[in-house]
Design a protein around this nucleic acid. Structure first.
Lengths: 324, 324
DNA sequence: TTCAGAGAGTAAGTTTTGCTAATCCTTCCG
DNA sequence: CGGAAGGATTAGCAAAACTTACTCTCTGAA
């Protein structure tokens, strides 16, 4: 393998070439001509080629020098521009923000949020990764995400990852309800929301876990059935919702998603004397990493937006972060 | 202006990123992990951004690190390839050879010469600059040509350049003759080649100098006329030749160019008892520059070819370079 | 649980290097 | 001619870069 020369000498060479003079280069580099001369000499011996023909008082670049310059000149330019961009993003939000979120929550709220944010900061672009908490936390740990929103509740036991490396901050508490269609409620349940009535009916579950259903029963009745009649299993809230609407059975749904449908009466929540269970969505960041300006700006924007969102406000509880 | 970081640290960073480990990087760099750690720390402080999140035993690159890598990775690749190419051209001829030559001489002999050479060394490409000695020497001095063939005779007084900076080596002696068409010779001159006969006739001259004609008269009669009847002035040997063929008058022509025409008898040389004047074509190189392998290989090829060239052999004298 | 191993970071000491100052050489130019 | 100006060289010193030795923390095996 070829040994690369001392890269700092390349910068010296660059200036010698640009100025076609050792003395001139020494002035822009703020060193003595002697030092420049030594740099050039060593660089030439390192790459084994004369770079300039010493012509009395003049330096005439060789073809090799021109070739070398053609390589390093764009690099210096790119490097300077790139570093400038990196530095600038400390003054004004810019660059790419990589966000992780649960599937439904993410696809419901983030695209519009991104659009609003980009009106104020058009230099910011987004990468939205929707997925399971386990996946998102893994990506966060690998530096592939800047931050993630994760619903710890639904899948607390799914990942064995070490939670110590993350900084968690509750953001919103999503209310999870068991719901069915009006028709199902009236004609199948007959309005009977007792444990005995419910366990014999049809349910729609999530593929990745059936903890949601079990948790709901645990929360509302202090017990669950070992064997619920699960008529559809799918890992997509839209599909669950559609199943509910078509009278397939009952399913666990974040209440804020069916706000309008419940107002109209087409979807009915199954209620007991207990309060509804809460799916706590937390903002997760890597402990060692201090957030960039872009990240901090977006997050404060995000929290402000969430507080103004009517649906979220009514059907979920925004956690007061100031007290955490 | 932004101050660029120490470039050698970028190489260290590159390896840290590539290996995602200080220890691994330290092994490929043949320094201790401690040194690598110090490099990274200083680089981060220089560019003002954390490049890795320290994760227990793991290093997780930040977005800034990825951005930086995107800049320097192609550079290192280009640099290595470029340096390899430069080094390789020391083992086998390759690259671009920039050749200067007098217009006629160059366009007559070089294209074919280049083609032959490229059969053996297809990696060599050529730039042929045709022009006046003054121009060629200037370009040579500016490093824009690798070497040049120059006819010093015709324009010795035209350039005030310092000849000390050049290394000159006679290559061929071109015989310059005064010629006219057979028709002109028989019906205008009537075969009379005396001084009195000639000075009253028509001549074709070169724009850039009329030294050629003056020299011819000086060489053949020891004197010249202050006022020759120059009926056409043009800086193109083909045009001069055409003028001669059309009976415009007499002109100075390299004898090897009209070899065939003289054999046929369509063009006739004006001869006296004196020998013809010689236009010495010399290979000129910059004194300080030692020729590359490509250059040396081509030049030895060139000299060999010239010796085999029948026309050149007959009508010009190849200078024996071994004795120079 | 304990203990060895591995990776990263830190401090201090040593070696290497890069830089300057002084000098020389050559060319350029008034 | 002689001073100015550019480049090369050398010696010596100051500033790095590197190493050694040690700490801290986590990991994985016993």
């Amino acid at each position: 393998m070829l040994i690369l020369p001392d890269l700092n000498r390349l910068r010296v060479f660059y200036h010698i070439f640009a100025e076609q003079s050792l003395v001139a280069a020494s002035k822009t580099l703020n060193i003595t001509p002697s030092a420049v001369s030594q740099h050039l000499k060593k660089l030439e011996s390192e790459i084994g080629t004369a770079l300039f023909i010493r012509q009395h008082k003049r330096l005439v670049p060789t073809p090799e020098a021109e070739k070398l310059l053609a390589i390093i000149k764009p690099f210096f330019h790119d490097l300077e521009v790139g570093l400038r961009a990196i530095n600038q993003s400390r003054e004004t939000p810019a660059g790419r923000l990589r966000v992780g979120a649960p599937l439904v929550f993410g696809k419901t709220y983030f695209p519009g949020m991104f659009a609003s944010f980009r009106i104020m900061y058009p230099q910011v672009t987004f990468v939205l990764k929707l997925g399971d908490p386990a996946v998102l936390l893994g990506m966060l740990g690998d530096g592939l995400l800047d931050f993630a929103l994760v619903d710890i509740f639904l899948s607390q036991r799914q990942f064995s990852a070490d939670l110590r490396m993350y900084r968690m901050e509750p953001v919103v508490d999503e209310e999870l309800i068991l719901a069915c269609s009006r028709n199902y409620y009236e004609h199948v349940l007959g309005g009977d929301c007792s444990f005995a009535s419910l366990v014999s009916r049809e349910f729609i579950s999530y593929y990745s876990n059936d903890l949601a259903l079990k948790s709901w029963f645990g929360d509302h009745f202090g017990k669950s059935s070992a064997r619920l009649n699960i008529v559809m299993t799918v890992d997509n809230v839209d599909a669950v919702l559609s199943g509910i609407e078509h009278g397939l059975g009952m399913g666990i749904i974040p209440s804020h998603l069916v706000h309008d449908a419940m107002q109209k009466g087409s979807i009915v929540p199954v209620t007991t004397t207990s309060t509804e269970i809460i799916n706590r969505i937390s903002l997760v960041q890597l402990k060692g990493k201090q957030p960039s300006l872009t990240e901090k700006t977006f997050l404060s924007f995000y929290k402000k937006m969430m507080q103004q969102d009517a649906v979220v406000e009514k059907f979920s509880r925004i956690v007061d972060n100031e007290k955490v």
